[in-house]
Design a protein around this nucleic acid. Structure first.
Lengths: 294, 294
DNA sequence: AATTTGCTTCAGGAAAATTGAAATGCAGAT
DNA sequence: ATCTGCATTTCAATTTTCCTGAAGCAAATT
């Protein structure tokens, strides 16, 4: 017979109460069960844990064991609690990478909600462009990402979240606003287009034509916005990007052709099983997106 | 079902080996037993600990549990070992008080032997006179004492160790040495007796007579010895005290009357059960004394 | 001395763990 | 795709461990 946690728990209860019946009450056992269990423990150690067969005075060995056992039980129960909390996503760590537009629009709400339900989870969020997100994912540096694979096939598991249609971002003083109901590609050709990585990847001929004519290309979104704000030109960007901005100065106009959009997806390595906390955040995001789309 | 140490042990073995059969081999169980035990653990947590039903890749929860469980098992096994060591007197602490003569004669040998057999036991030794030893014992400041109760009844449990006969301590130039074969009380009356606490307590009339005539009383043994060394006078002391000294200058002569002696005893509080280490030292002392008396 | 209190022991029964055999389910090979 | 071999799971039977309630003791109390 080995020394087991239950024996220690039994001994500690008896040592604390000073008698079998009270300890039995606490543990939900009969005194005889405790008596036998203590006997086992004593047989193990080859010595008595108590002075007499009355359990109200510890032997030197008993005092030593009590001290050790109390510490150990606390330790053990703490560990079990930690594990359970982790499993219930009440603790743990989630690392998330998302494209800036999503990080700035829907994530704040989702994260606030998630953290209020799981206050002890440690959450890390990075924003970066889609290719970087895929790289981080491959290196296992994030639990999952929110990005667009743009139709490129990847080894990752992708779950569509929503479609993010492209449109024109222009200054509110732009003449395009007047034509917004029946905008044509020809109208756009009259404007100065500020190209960027996202708009560049649109696979529609008319749009690609516009880009080949564009004389200005800006990679950084905030710089690009500053350009528009100063009426340097217009840009083609997804709608969520527009939502990041103060609508007072800059306006969003849908493209002349419908169906030009990027698909925002929740992306994760399919092999690695997520931590419970990550799974829970994922669930929260999906739920949030679905409720928003109604 | 609760989480138990055995579950963790099982999980750690499987996680380490990466498969059930090897782990089963190690634990001395069948794979099916481990499978069921893991299932229990997983049911407890509500999640899988492994990626697939092959046990070679841990889930995020599994990785977390492995880390916790390994630490905990080490902790637990360490504690069990500590307790067993304590019970086997391989560790622990013993506090011992002894009269100086014993501390200086037989204890060095006993303690050397005890410590060589129990290298991790912490041993504390004080020397003091018998009344102080009894006081320390009463205050539970020592585990046991080696002293003489001098026939005074005490509440302690006393085990006789050996008899320590009284005799004369005199300088080697003393004339008493010539008469040592048939010394009389009258011979002693010719000498200057240096009285001391131990000799004072001898209940023999002739001896008490000597003491009432004594004009010098020295309490501290080392001072008393210095007196004898300088031929100030003679003293009546137990034989073990004489053994502490270099025999070159000072000699021991038995008293004219036989049977004048103090009983050296091993004294302990009967109620408190000793620590295993104390018990073991006690055993060593008894054994040593018995072997020496043959 | 009688009673109460508290522990131990015992035998039977309940619960849990373990086993071996058979079934299932993957993964790599055909 | 299907087959094959290995690892895991499942199942029923068995063994082991644990628990209970009754009876018996011993110490403390009346």
């Amino acid at each position: 017979m080995q020394i087991k946690i239950e024996m220690l728990r039994c001994f500690v209860a008896v040592a604390r109460t000073g008698n079998l019946s009270d300890a039995a009450e606490i543990l939900g056992r009969t005194p005889s069960a405790l008596s036998m269990m203590l006997k086992q423990l004593e047989d193990n150690l080859g010595q008595s844990l108590f002075e007499t067969d009355r359990k109200n005075r510890l032997s030197a060995l008993g005092a030593f064991v009590l001290e050790q056992a109390e510490r150990e039980l606390q330790q053990f129960d703490g560990m079990v609690q930690d594990i359970v909390n982790f499993a219930k996503a009440k603790s743990g760590k989630v690392r998330l990478a998302a494209v800036p537009s999503v990080a700035n629009t829907i994530l704040p709400g989702v994260i606030a909600r998630f953290l209020s339900m799981h206050p002890d989870v440690h959450l890390e969020l990075w924003d970066m462009d889609s290719p970087s997100i895929l790289r981080e994912l491959a290196k296992d540096r994030v639990d999952f990402g929110i990005a667009s694979t743009q139709g490129y096939p990847t080894a990752f598991h992708c779950q569509p979240l929503f479609s993010d249609r492209f449109g024109i971002l222009c200054h509110r003083s732009s003449g395009l606003l007047l034509k917004r109901q029946n905008l044509s590609w020809e109208d756009l050709r009259q404007e100065r287009l500020i190209a960027n990585n996202l708009s560049q990847s649109i696979q529609v001929p008319a749009c690609q034509q516009l880009h080949s004519d564009a004389g200005l290309r800006v990679h950084n979104i905030t710089s690009l916005i500053a350009m528009i704000r100063n009426k340097v030109g217009i840009a083609i960007l997804p709608e969520t990007t527009a939502q990041m901005l103060n609508a007072d100065e800059i306006c969003f106009i849908p493209l002349p052709e419908a169906g030009i959009q990027r698909e925002i997806e929740l992306i994760k390595k399919s092999e690695t099983s997520p931590s419970p906390a990550a799974l829970e955040l994922e669930r929260t995001i999906l739920e949030f997106v679905q409720s928003r789309q109604i």
